[in-house]
């Protein structure tokens, strides 16, 4: 049984949106692309509210990005100046908005795959002629990022529960503490990775050069049409933008 759209079609759509996100520099164009992505997600039954939650998680990063952009870009009308240094200009605001929107588009694009599980993604990559060891490894790597972050947060809590007031510790010692915390997070992640590797070998991963697949979805005409439409739309947007 095949689902529509096929995972490969979704991968192509993700690729199209990320290309646009990276190629476009104008905040208005990026906003339009974001709107398009959200509409497409909604059409697939994926709520745009989830993007909001993801964006919230990265708000610290955004702030840094916005500040960096607006401080380093002094083109256009100047709004705020201090001793000859431009602090805020229309060019800076535009650059900051573009940077934030760019990340939003990329995060939204990734959400197209949120309804697909690892097995489906690996199958799709293999169908695109990516060696399956590589496909598994890439996806496992991606899977370990949140695990690693979680580990780091737990270690941070654990160390404070041992009576260490991170807010009151001088900087030099703080750095030492952070290196302490990194240790269990890295060790934990490595130990877990090794466990997964052993578990996979124990289940005969890579024991034979060829493997069979429980599902080998086929591309339907609808998929080809959707892919063609996505590529054509992307090309059209780029052509208009660069005209």
């Amino acid at each position: 049984m095949s689902r529509f759209p096929d995972t490969r079609t979704l991968l192509l759509i993700v690729l199209c949106f990320t290309t646009l996100a990276l190629a476009l520099g104008d905040p208005f164009w990026l906003a339009a692309v974001l709107a398009l992505a959200l509409a497409a997600l909604a059409a697939m039954g994926i709520s745009p509210a989830r993007l909001g939650r993801r964006l919230k998680r990265y708000r610290g990063l955004f702030l840094v990005l916005v500040l960096a952009q607006s401080l380093t870009n002094s083109s256009g009308r100047v709004f705020l100046e201090w001793r000859g240094h431009v602090l805020l200009s229309s060019g800076g605001v535009q650059a900051a908005a573009a940077a934030v929107l760019r990340i939003a588009v990329i995060l939204a694009a990734a959400m197209f795959l949120s309804r697909r599980n690892y097995q489906e993604l690996v199958t799709a990559l293999v169908q695109l002629r990516v060696p399956y060891e590589l496909a598994y490894m890439v996806l496992l790597g991606v899977r370990f990022i949140p695990v690693f972050m979680e580990e780091f947060r737990t270690a941070l809590t654990a160390i404070q529960l041992r009576g260490v007031d991170l807010d009151k510790v001088p900087l030099g010692r703080k750095i030492r503490i952070y290196s302490y915390i990194l240790m269990p997070a890295v060790a934990g992640a490595l130990i877990r990775a090794r466990r997964v590797a052993v578990a996979m070998e124990a289940r005969a991963f890579r024991a034979r050069p060829r493997r069979t697949w429980l599902e080998w979805p086929r591309l339907h005409r609808r998929d080809w049409l959707l892919m063609a439409a996505a590529v054509a739309a992307t090309a059209a947007v780029l052509a208009l933008y660069w005209r």
Partner: peptide, 24 residues
Amino acid sequence: YSLAERGRRVGYVFQNPERQFFAA
């Protein structure tokens, strides 16, 4: 209370002890 204050007053042993180790 800060996390540190809580930890000094109430000791907490995690269900998974591995979770609270950080030293070498």
